[in-house]
Design a protein around this nucleic acid. Structure first.
Lengths: 199, 199, 199, 199
DNA sequence: AATTAATCGAGACGGTACGTCGTGTCTTAAA
DNA sequence: TTTAAGACACGACGTACCGTCTCGATTAATT
């Protein structure tokens, strides 16, 4: 995994980059996030510390790089109903966050609380995902499924908030269908507002 | 704040406890959360490190202690409508989180991501707040304001999620009325679902 | 071993004293000298730290107390010749220093290097032993065995020095007969100065 | 003594080494041996604790390094007689041990009693000095001054023992001529064994 | 072809914080 | 007054990382 690498001249060595990111992932899997020090990554990747700091000036930057290396989630299922779409979105997201590299995300949020650079990167990423999520609501609006009272952005934010909360309190096994229902039921044109099951 | 304190026998000295918590608050206000090391707190409080670790075994435990020392937010406004109540709740909470000691909460959430003890304490606290928040919805249900389709707990969770999201991305200045409207509009019996303003 | 003991009124409790000294010996046997802290002794003896400090103000004082509790070595063999007497003395002493409580002595010497109180106690003890050792030479002088050129005290000091050196460099298994011969041969009236075996 | 020093690459910085040893000497001179903590040395030398522990893993190792930095005592006087040589040796040694850096030696012996690494280093040093001291006796033997009964090594050990004893009981002001006489008188061919002064 | 310049692994450096341990002092409550 | 108990302020322990640095080597692009 860690053969000798040297400079390839006056430019960045992609093998080194890969070795570093791989090492970071491996460390988090083995020791948890608290084991992820720059020192440990350098050691494991057989990279010089200066090399690390040259390309990832902070631990948060390294974290973001690892997280973003994975390809974006391509798209979300189109089930034909908003409630189904939202439930599908949550399912996809929760199972993504449950995988080794996805697990990092909660730590990125944590890091952002004390590191402005991470916060900025996270915010950019979040806005991007928010836009992507909004499309789901636009689709429903186009279908005429939506009572237009609530802006798409607000609804997307509510869904994202629900997702983050469950990530941060380690409840990724929660009932996504229930969540979708609780959020969506009111936004959609009333078919069944009266037949509600009290609980 | 930092007079000499000694043992008062084989039992905890409340003066020491106060000095430590005061020191922690002062440090966070002056240096930010990254300045809050056990070392620094001990130094500032003129307390031995052993004393700190005796009563607050982790940084997270200390954080929770500081946060919980402040008296609970007494109650939330009763505005007569659910939407008003929710908006009031968010206002109260956001202004609380904006004050020096309230600022700590986001760091407690961050700490919980890597420390099981903090996570446990946070979860207990969260359930407590959730129950308190649910009362708001029970009140609305008693008024007959609520379409009974959605359990109170689910609605409370959605509101809490919205609040946490805005805390964690540093948007405590966001439009709470809008948030309340986005969430509540659908849960309530439809008076005005048709007159929505599209976006 | 460590039943409950309490105050027996306004005077020293001999049970406590015994428990403390026993604990000290046990600790040194189990953990070595570096494990012998006042803290550890108090813990093991189930004694209060204040009690310890009241009666043995320093670690060195405790060490001396443990060492001196053992009864003095009664006397040394009278073999009829000085060389035999000295060899016997060294044998007795080395086997004493090899036993658990005897092992402490090297640590007392070590402690004396940095603690004036211990140094003083050790010096008193040493003068006492020196006087006792001198008797051995007086006996030889009385027998007419000694060429009177050298004061008894000087000879005793030389023998003691040899013993200490071997203790301090952990060579208690060395050839005591050889030592005795090397020291004594020249002090005695010349019977055999010519027949020496070079080596 | 405490200018800024930094790494000079992946190898030991001799300036740092000098600063540390200087600091150690200064501390012992000012505060005595009990003030010589690794912490204090690092502080005074403006060196990181890790740097200290990298090169001197124990306090004893540091002590040995300080002691050995001084150049060896070049040679011992050749007075023409063994007794004179031994007295000269003791004089030289005692005055060396009385100087600031020489004072350390008793603490090295003390440290060796509880630290195997120091004991080992000390033993190597001691064997070296013993060999050097033996030459003095070989010289006397070559002059025919010595009754060959006693091995040179045994005599050297006796002289060393005498020296150590006086060091350890803080009697470096003792009469070295008397010591030399007491030890040597018997080893030499009897010229004057009869005219001894009784005591 | 020789030179320049950025990169690489390596690891020492001065620091800070960690969490633990021992020190000697103190107070309590019981005997 | 002594006892066991143990909290307290203090400070050293030895370890781990931090972010900076200097080195000697490697290699591509520039002279």
């Amino acid at each position: 995994m860690t053969e000798r690498r040297a400079s390839i001249g006056a430019r960045r060595n992609p093998e080194t980059e890969a070795a570093v990111l791989d090492a970071a992932v491996a460390i988090v899997e083995e020791k948890g996030i608290s084991g992820l020090s720059m020192e440990a990554v350098a050691r494991r990747a057989r990279a010089g510390k200066a090399t690390l700091y040259r390309w990832w000036p902070t631990r948060g930057a390294l974290l973001m790089a690892v997280y973003q290396r994975q390809k974006r989630i391509a798209g979300y299922p189109d089930t034909g109903t908003l409630e189904g779409d939202v439930a599908g979105f949550l399912d996809t997201l929760f199972s993504h966050w449950s995988r080794p590299e996805g697990r990092l995300f909660r730590h990125i949020i944590a890091a952002a609380q004390g590191d402005a650079d991470v916060a900025e990167a996270l915010e950019a990423y979040r806005q991007d995902r928010l836009a992507s999520l909004s499309e789901l609501f636009e689709r429903a609006r186009a279908r005429g499924e939506l009572s237009a009272a609530v802006p798409s952005g607000d609804m997307a934010r509510a869904v994202m908030a629900m997702a983050w909360l469950h990530l941060l309190v380690d409840r990724l096994d929660a009932d996504t269908a229930g969540m979708a229902r609780a959020l969506v039921r009111g936004w959609t044109v009333s078919r069944g507002a009266g037949e509600a099951r009290p609980q």
